[in-house]
Every structure is written in structure tokens, then in C-alpha cells.
Design a protein around this nucleic acid. Structure first.
Lengths: 344, 344
DNA sequence: CTGAAAGCGCTAACAT
DNA sequence: ATGTTAGCGCTTTCAG
């Protein structure tokens, strides 16, 4: 079959132990024999067998990521950070795209097959408590991104602050009547963004009636989708409530749907209604969306970093970091005169 | 450490062979002992060690994909097809995102580490001839998606037909002066789309001068990017050539950039210039792009299917399938009155 | 400094 | 039908 260290050992007249040593740069090998082994290995075009290594080392140098896969561009951008960091470290990444919460469990199981991966990254999905226990017992490293559990390392965005900044931006522009198009309240980001919106409004002495708020009933991707935004906006319009002068939308992708729905009704943005959304995915700039920017790439990088630390030191105290989102002003809120949002 | 088949064997008073047999559903086990083993395995919460299995089976049940990762939404949609098919078959997917051709080689190497993966999927990237040889010798299954090599299975889109249909659509709308915003000619899809465009035009008796064609110089993603489209359009405009009445753009993502550049110059679509692009990524509908649709999900599914066949039968003749793209008419070409592309 | 040998956890061929 | 054993390819003691 393939060339193994036995082949090299034979050719070099040394034991496989020695071959292994030079291949792993471990000390105590004459530079003579080292040379010889390396030359032969190269000549034979030797490639180590990853699984055999993993089995012997009890370490696979691969991570898995469980992620609401291609539905939301937010993840793609975080993944990019994960990918690049991992690659530079010689790690591999196994991707498990899930479309619903049920699938999470299956993959959690799979990832936990001992030795399969050194750790797993869970994105934006609630960690079922039953699994939390089991994972803890098995000591499979797990880090959470954009989700939370007290027993595991996590990396999140400060949704409360983000929603506050977004809301205050709108307020500062003179808006008094502000509505919110939200994702599904089952998701914690949606929950947090809503309460912060409410709180901020009330801090400014404005109470908001329920018909100014539209929560998505969608299960798919927890309502963080274009369709969700579109339908929410349609329904909002159908309610007949007076249109607020501004809208806070819980994600860029939804905002794109909102824009479409608005356009169909001949409602202009930002002339008739201002919009600020959340995420700042690459798409956002194509739609000139004013939005709360999250450092997605950096989050990916940090997730990997945390994971590696956890692997090194399984008993270190659990850490949780919150990134602070920043406001990116484009045209959809009407604050930026530079932009021409709609052409004639 | 973790629970192994030895633990189960001991508890069940059987040999590890028997345990292995029931776990693998092989015949010749009393339903009695089968029951017993299964119960114990479940109670102990046994999880097979994937690497040990792979080592013994000489088969890993994982595939790798080398892919110009997050840059182009086309890939994401194909990947979705790959992912879902693989998952349903119990395979894992290791993703290698590359940003340039150089990285391809590194990953090709990595993927070829014997036993690491059962096969690799190469997307849209030229296969260096040196590697082609080596891969053939090593007999690592490789299937190409959106790229081609005579020695390997491949799945592509018929770019020639696609460009022809797109061009003829524009022609049928009465356009005589049609330009093309193309990606980097280093990429074969770009090359094919251009020549087909040229050919089709000349078949209709129209010769096109070079200044109606703009090829991207970008290396990044071979010019299939929003920025590339934006800059190409800007430059096109700067040339001072009379603006054609229609533009064929080599990808949706570029078309989005083109749209932005046009908007900045106050040029309306489709009133001033009609556009048809290529791919039909999900985004396309958000921009009301008329475009050539490629069955991306299906391509992903088929790629996996081909790979599995190749694994089963390494010596089967090489196959190559071409998907036929279809025209999706939206607003950007002005043919569809239903759409209101720009609001007032 | 280096060879030999004992695993890593599992599969599969070989006995019985 | 089931126990035993020999690998799979590599790492890592343990001698020497």
C-alpha cells in the first residue's frame, strides 16, 4: 500500500522508533542518521497516516463546528476566521451544518465519539442541558459562539449594548415612533435585542405599544432570514398600525426582506422610514444598511484560540467574552447624506 | 479513559470479536448475546473510536473539499448539497478554504495523506498537472466540480450554452450594442463565457469591439467578486466608450458591484442599461437580477454521488457531466414588466 | 543515541 | 455462533 515508517526504517537501516523520532523532531538523534532518514522519507514521498498518528497520540488535530450552516451569512464570516486560524496551526475542521435544533443532538453525539475531534465549536444554538452534563463528564472541550452556558467557554456579542446604541442612534435622529422587526424570541439574541430596545426607549421616556413590535414565528434559523423579514414587514403593514418613522431590525438579512416588502408597498427608505439593523455582514453594504457591526472574523479567531487554551488546560476556569458591537452608519437611517440610497 | 469494546466484552462475558460483530450488525450472533451486548453498550454509553475504526477498516468515511471558500456564494450553495448528502450517508466533511492557487497545492498534499480522507472534492480550481500525476498514482479519489481535467471525474456547467442563452435573450430584447463585464480570463468559466458571448454575437452578425469587453485583472477569486464587478464597471465608464444598451456580466456577485457603480453614475437599470448575469445565487433575487441559473445544490449532491461511485469502483471510466443552465428572468434585463426594480 | 516492544481501539481472518 | 489473534501505522517507554 502506502509507504510507512517501516519502509523508511528498512532503507535507512534503523528502527522505526528512530524514524518516528526524526519525523517528530524529537531530540537525541545524530544529525547523520537524521539526514539519512529525512532524505529517504522525501525520496519515498512519505506521508504520515493521520489516523494512525491520532490513535497513537490520542489527539487528532481536528476540530468540529456545529453551525446553522449556510442560512446566515453571519456564520460564514465567523467561519472564515475559524478556518484561517486553524489552517495556520495545522488543524483540520469538520463542518456540521444543521438546519434545526434536533440535528444538533445528533452532531453533538457524533462529535463526542471519543478521539474523533479534539474539540467542538457550537454556534448560536442552545446547548441542551442533558448534553451539557454528558459533555462535561466526557471532558470533550466545547466552546460556544454566539450562545451561552455557564459551564462552558463562550464568545458573544453584547446584544444589549448593541440594541441600545442602535435605538439611541435612531432617537438622536429625532425619531419618536420606532418599531422593531425581530427574529424568533426563542433565540436569545432576539430576546436580548428586544428587551434592550424596550428598555432604551423607556429610558428615554417613550413607551412602545405591542403593535409596534413584530416577532417572527419562524422556526427556520430562528427567524433570522430574509423571508422572515419580508413576512414580518408584510404583516406589520397589514395590521394597519400607523407606520413608525423608524424601524430597528434584528439582523441585516431580515432587513433585506424588510426592504423588499417596503418597496412593494411604495414605502421609501430612508425618506418614509429609517432602518437600522444588526450584524454588518458583507451584504449589508450592498444595501446601504446602517447596522450594528460585529467583529465576526475576530470572533472566529478568538473561538479557536479559546478552544486551544481549553485543550491545553482542561481545568482552567470557564471564561466568557462579550464583544461590543459598533454602529456603522450608511444610508438606510437617513443620517448619512453622502449616500444616495435610491436612484431616481 | 473512554469505554471500549473491551469493557463491553468483559461485562457481557463475550470476546471482543463478538462485540465488534454486533456493533457492526454482522451476521452470526445469537439474538440473545446481541441483545445483551447492545444493552450493555448503551448503558455504558459506548461510542466507537472513529480513528481506530478508520485504521482497521482502511476507510475513514470522511471526504475533504478544497474550495475557494467564503468568497463566492456559488460555492456555499453547492456545499450545501454536498453537506446534506454526506450527512445522510454518515460521512464527515473536512473543509479546506483556499484564497489562492498556491494554497491548493498545500491542501492537495494534506488531503492525500493516505487514509486521512476517502476522497477529495476540488472546486473551481485548476488542478496542477504535477499533482494530477501524483494523485493518479496514489489512487486517491478526486472529483472536480466546476473545473476540468481529462483524467478525473468532473461536474460542470455548460458555460458555452449559458452564455449563448444569456446573449440571445438580450438580443431578442432588441439590443444591438452589448458589452461584457467578465472575470479573470485565467479562469476557464470566464474564458468560456466570453468566447461563447463573442461567438453568439457574431452568429447574429454583430461584431464587438474590444472596448465593449472588460476582463478583470483581479487574482482574488479570479475576479468573481463584487469589488471586481464594481471596478470593472468604473473603468468601463472611465474609458468613455459609448455605453452599450445591455451588459452581460459573468457572475451575480460581480453584477452587484456593477449595479453599485452604475448607480453612482446615475445610470439606471434596466432603463438605461439591461443586465443579465450568471449563477443565480440566492442573492440574485434580492437584486432582481436576470441571470443564468445553475443547479448548485444538485451539483453538490451529484459530486458526492460520483465520489462514492469512484470509491466503490476505482477503475471505472472517467465521467464528466455538464449541467445546462437555464434563464431566470427578473427585472434587470427589462423584460419582466411585473417587477418594479427601482422605487421612486 | 537507538533498537525493540508494547500499546492506541478496532476489524477481520482464523480457529473451534 | 463465538473466542482468539494478528494486524492497521504510529508513538513512546524501556533497555541497552
Amino acid at each position: 500500500m502506502s509507504v510507512t515508517i517501516y519502509d523508511i526504517a528498512r532503507e535507512a537501516n534503523v528502527g522505526i522508533g528512530t524514524v518516528s523520532r526524526v519525523l517528530n523532531n524529537s531530540a537525541n538523534v545524530t544529525s547523520q542518521t537524521r539526514e539519512r532518514v529525512i532524505t529517504i522519507a522525501r525520496r519515498l514521498n512519505y506521508q504520515p497516516h493521520a489516523f494512525a498518528q491520532a490513535l497513537a497520540r490520542k489527539r487528532s488535530n481536528t476540530l468540529s463546528a456545529i453551525i446553522p450552516f449556510f442560512t446566515n451569512y453571519f456564520f460564514i464570516e465567523v467561519l472564515q476566521g475559524v478556518q484561517e486560524t486553524l489552517t495556520s496551526l495545522g488543524y483540520d475542521l469538520i463542518i456540521h451544518g444543521v438546519n434545526s435544533q434536533d440535528q444538533v443532538e445528533e452532531y453533538l453525539q457524533r462529535s463526542m465519539r471519543k478521539g474523533r475531534v479534539d474539540g467542538t465549536l457550537l454556534f448560536s444554538l442552545e446547548l441542551p442541558e442533558i448534553y451539557a452534563q454528558e459533555i462535561l463528564e466526557r471532558k470533550t472541550p466545547l466552546v460556544l459562539v454566539d450562545t451561552f452556558h455557564p459551564k462552558f467557554d463562550s464568545i458573544r456579542v453584547d446584544n444589549t449594548m448593541g440594541a441600545k446604541i442602535a435605538t439611541e442612534h435612531l432617537l438622536s435622529l429625532g425619531h419618536k415612533s420606532i418599531g422593531m422587526i425581530n427574529a424568533n424570541l426563542k433565540s436569545s439574541p432576539a430576546k436580548e435585542r428586544l428587551s434592550s430596545f424596550r428598555l432604551t426607549m423607556s429610558e428615554h421616556g417613550i413607551s412602545i405599544s405591542d403593535d409596534l413590535i413584530m416577532n417572527s414565528p419562524d422556526a427556520k434559523n430562528d427567524g433570522f432570514s430574509r423571508e422572515s423579514g419580508y413576512h414580518s414587514m408584510k404583516e406589520f403593514l397589514a395590521r394597519g398600525t400607523a407606520l413608525p418613522t423608524a424601524l430597528f431590525v434584528s439582523s441585516d438579512i431580515q432587513a433585506i426582506g424588510v426592504l423588499a416588502a417596503l418597496r412593494e408597498s411604495g414605502i421609501r427608505v430612508p425618506e418614509d422610514v429609517s432602518i437600522v439593523s444588526f450584524d454588518d455582514v458583507e451584504l449589508a453594504k450592498n444595501f446601504d444598511l446602517t447596522t450594528m457591526s460585529q467583529p465576526m472574523f475576530k470572533m472566529g479567531v478568538l473561538a479557536v484560540k479559546k478552544m486551544l487554551e481549553r485543550i491545553e488546560n482542561p481545568n482552567a476556569p470557564v471564561t466568557s467574552v462579550d464583544f461590543k458591537p459598533t454602529l456603522v452608519i450608511r444610508a438606510s437611517c437617513g443620517a448619512n447624506k453622502k449616500y444616495v440610497f435610491h436612484q431616481q
